[in-house]
């Protein structure tokens, strides 16, 4: 019986790691620009296919129907992760300039529609380039099941789990220690004051969208060996990740990470009890959290002066 619970915990943490990574990418733009990229899911899918293309090119083929078994071996996978991160980061600049900047800070929620629209454009472009097929991506450390006290887990799930934690720690340090992090927090606190203090506010905002894009691209490639790559894979993950971010507190990166992991574990344990309650429990939790703590479990309370 304990193996069953351990399995639920491990499975929950590994899915939660995916949610946490994407939840963090939501948080980055929210803390600096008070806007969200609602096409984060498409960014994740796009990143996965950029990474997959790199894996194939490095393996000397471009046949998506026959991905070689050793396509992720050696340094190919890290190369794919980096390329996807960089490219999706660049797409982050475009979404900021085209879909967010014209509307940010203005009354109304135009940026919601414009970011969703940007995602549709990105997905359509992806369909033109890569087609609608679902593509299997081999894991860099093989497909075998690793057994831990009777519970089974795959190598890539551990990789995602560990990298989510490492990224969280690094990001935390950047935000709290470095000049860039301080500038970002200053912009988040008040763009006007930050600007008066000589901080290039636009540049910091672009930087936030680039970082958010880098994370999405990175997440896409990391998740692809677990979920198989498709241009539709990102949406499901990003919805859950957004829920995790809301629960943890959108304006607290640590809280977002925690929220993502928590959601994965809750889903897994509710599945042990009554699987029909899995989705319900997630959203009941959101309503409860928002009722008691409107800014999330770890969110800082913001007071809008009227």
């Amino acid at each position: 019986m304990s193996a069953t619970y351990l399995q639920a915990l491990l499975s929950g943490l590994s899915v939660g790691g995916i949610y946490a990574l994407i939840a963090l990418s939501f948080s980055i733009t929210f803390t600096t620009t008070k806007t969200l990229n609602f096409s984060q899911g498409e960014f994740v899918s796009f990143g996965a296919f950029v990474g997959l293309s790199v894996l194939l090119l490095l393996s000397g083929t471009f046949d998506f129907n026959a991905v070689p078994a050793d396509a992720s071996a050696g340094l190919k996978f890290p190369a794919a992760v980096v390329t996807a991160g960089v490219l999706v980061g660049v797409v982050g600049i475009f979404i900021f300039l085209l879909a967010v900047r014209p509307f940010a800070g203005k009354p109304g929620m135009s940026w919601v529609m414009s970011t969703i629209g940007f995602g549709i454009i990105l997905q359509s472009l992806g369909l033109v380039v890569w087609g609608p097929a679902v593509v299997n991506v081999p894991a860099p450390f093989g497909e075998g099941v690793i057994r831990i006290f009777g519970a089974g887990v795959r190598s890539q799930e551990l990789v995602v789990l560990v990298s989510a934690i490492v990224i969280m720690l690094v990001f935390d340090q950047i935000m709290r220690r470095s000049l860039l992090g301080k500038a970002m927090r200053a912009v988040a606190f008040s763009p006007q004051v930050a600007s008066l203090m000589g901080i290039n506010v636009t540049l910091v905002m672009v930087g936030a969208f680039v970082m958010s894009g880098v994370l999405a691209g990175f997440a896409g490639v990391m998740v692809a060996p677990i979920s198989t790559a498709s241009l539709f894979m990102g949406l499901g993950f990003s919805l859950k990740a957004f829920a995790g971010a809301i629960i943890g507190g959108l304006n607290n990166p640590r809280g977002c990470i925690f929220g993502g992991f928590m959601l994965g574990v809750i889903e897994s344990f509710v599945g042990l009890w009554h699987s029909e309650w899995r989705e319900i429990s997630v959203f009941v939790l959101i309503i409860l959290v928002l009722a008691v703590r409107p800014d999330g479990l770890f969110g800082a309370r913001t007071v809008d002066k009227v």
Binding site: T4, Q7, A8, V15, I226, G236
Partner: peptide
């Protein structure tokens, strides 16, 4: 399970505990 799920171990552990020896599943390919 949901169409995007990648891990169904919790549900399977319940079936295993119930002693299920034959499983009939209706779902899409992935």
């Amino acid at each position: 399970f949901a169409v995007n799920d990648t891990d169904m171990t919790s549900q399977l552990n319940k079936l295993k505990a119930a002693g299920v020896d034959t499983l009939v599943v209706w779902a899409q390919g992935a």
